[in-house]
């Protein structure tokens, strides 16, 4: 995996040097030779250094837990991860939590009241919202609510926190964090909620006809208990794996949303790193994503066994 990623990102068209040259020319109007000269000395990146040599050095460091330094800024990659990861975990995590929670609840009710007005309205809402890409929602939200209607003080809401505010476990700081997280979380929820609702609904549908549900109903269990303990729990099973994969990808952040809202998350950082071909930073971020995806999948399998006692993983069946 690591090897594959290592080779992959070095085969990407362009390299940090030529990109810097182009940037200098476009942004500072330098002539080619001027830009080439300046870029050449800006970072010690040698495009002709053998890949194998770079690879052995990288792996050697990695085994000692060292992710290396950014080839652009010479900043240790670990520092960057530590700086940006918490923001992403907070905002995307919160967004996922809300959209998943709301999604399974509404989805279950949709299936339960199948064919009702509630079901139809929610289906329309979910399908349409889920069909619109996040950047369209984000840009329209800012332009319409922020600029044209002026009901959203979006300029103040950009970023992760108000510049100059002292971090600490205080109410004003927490409120400030939530204030700034509102835009990314809201956009994240609104664009992913529909997906959870519809999958939960369809998953619940497969459960509804099951014998044990009929039995439970015959036993006269309350609707609430029926929904939570019997239907919901079983219907959630396939969603748990999906959730796990989403959790795994949290660390990658929401690249477009973070960039548009200037949220200081790992996704924004990744976008920059890809743009300037900062190989070491990309490696670091992709590694963290890979680890967390694999890890959350393992977790999902374990969780799955807990949620559905019928399945005991590792039990060998010959079929």
């Amino acid at each position: 995996m690591t090897t594959f990623t290592f080779i992959l990102i070095r085969q990407m068209p362009g390299n940090p040097f030529s990109i810097k040259v182009e940037q200098l020319m476009r942004e500072q109007n330098l002539t080619v030779e001027e830009a080439t000269n300046r870029a050449g000395a800006l970072f010690d990146f040698d495009p002709n250094r053998p890949l194998l040599e770079q690879y052995t050095e990288y792996m050697g460091k990695l085994l000692r837990g060292d992710l290396g330094k950014s080839i652009i800024s010479s900043e240790p990659v670990m520092n960057m991860l530590l700086r940006f990861l918490p923001w992403t975990l907070f905002s995307v995590g919160l967004g996922l939590l809300i959209s998943f929670g709301l999604g399974i609840l509404i989805g279950m009710l949709m299936a339960y009241w199948r064919g009702s007005l509630f079901d139809n309205v929610m289906t329309a809402f979910a399908s349409v919202m889920y069909g619109i890409p996040d950047y369209v929602i984000a840009l329209l939200l800012i332009i319409v609510a922020g600029v044209q209607l002026r009901i959203l003080p979006f300029a103040q809401m950009l970023g992760g926190s108000t510049p100059g505010i002292e971090p600490g476990f205080r109410l004003d700081y927490i409120l400030d964090l939530l204030f700034h997280a509102f835009l990314p979380v809201f956009t994240y929820v609104i664009t992913s909620l529909g997906g959870w609702m519809l999958t939960m609904k369809s998953s619940t549908m497969s459960t509804l006809g099951e014998d044990y549900i009929t039995v439970a109903r015959a036993r006269g269990l309350s609707q609430r208990r029926l929904l939570t303990a019997y239907i919901g729990r079983n219907a959630m099973l396939p969603l748990v794996t999906r959730l796990a994969i989403s959790v795994g990808f949290i660390v990658g952040g929401a690249v477009i949303i973070e960039t548009l809202y200037q949220y200081p998350g790992l996704g924004r950082n990744l976008a920059t790193a890809i743009l300037v071909r900062d190989y070491t930073v990309m490696q670091g971020i992709f590694l963290v994503i890979a680890i967390s995806v694999v890890f959350s999948n393992i977790l999902a399998d374990l969780l799955f066994g807990l949620l559905d006692p019928r399945v005991r993983l590792g039990k060998e069946d010959a079929s």
Partner: peptide
């Protein structure tokens, strides 16, 4: 898992 962890954009 392998496919999931390949960085797709690169």
């Amino acid at each position: 898992n392998f496919i999931l962890t390949i960085p797709q954009f690169p």
